[in-house]
Amino acid sequence: MSLLAFYARNAQEVLGLVAQHLYLVAVSTLLAFALGIPLGIVLTRRPAWQRPVLGLANVFQTVPSLALFGFLIPLPFIGGIGASTAIVALVLYALLPIVRNTYTGIAGVDPAVREAGRGMGMTDWQLLTQVELPLGFGVILAGVRVATVVSVGTATIAAAIGAGGLGVYIFRGVAVVDDTLILAGALPAALMALAADGLLGLAERRLAWRGK
């Protein structure tokens, strides 16, 4: 059966899975921003925490998803089966690029600019919001972009824990050795990743302040 015929016959199911996939990616990346950006900022203020925190975020990335799900199933609130567990795993996977780039983006601001700001009498908050975040924005956005694109791909594993998404087709296809099914899941996920990459790349070019 050709892919187009498959989509035509299962249009409603496909749209449902695409919506589920987008939901998983949107919620998990937004949570990862909300957690990762402040964490990256804290690291610029507490350099001693940098190694343990980045190390831990690195470890999360290397844990295979099935093993991570295995750990998460017994946990109350964030665990179990379904979307919440998948989102927790996706957040953990997305954290490293966001934390690391937030830290690098801010740490990369010219020390003379920071000294001038402090010497002019800016508070730490003013320095952060008016100088460090705007100047580090490009690097931070690059991290956000990586995290989002990676999340679109890794969200396919949500299907392993009953959270749906495009991974459903991939898992089904693998189970019954049906390449059309695998492609039916993989292709829209890949297109979604490309679209996210393109859009965020555009945002990066439009919004980020660029040094000479």
Binding site: F69, G82, A159, A160, I161, G162
Partner: peptide, 18 residues
């Protein structure tokens, strides 16, 4: 039925999730 990885179904059953 919840569709999930076969290995994880054992874990989910043992933990009372299904």
């Amino acid at each position: 039925p919840t569709a999930m990885d076969l290995g994880l179904t054992y874990r989910a059953l043992a933990e009372g999730k299904v």
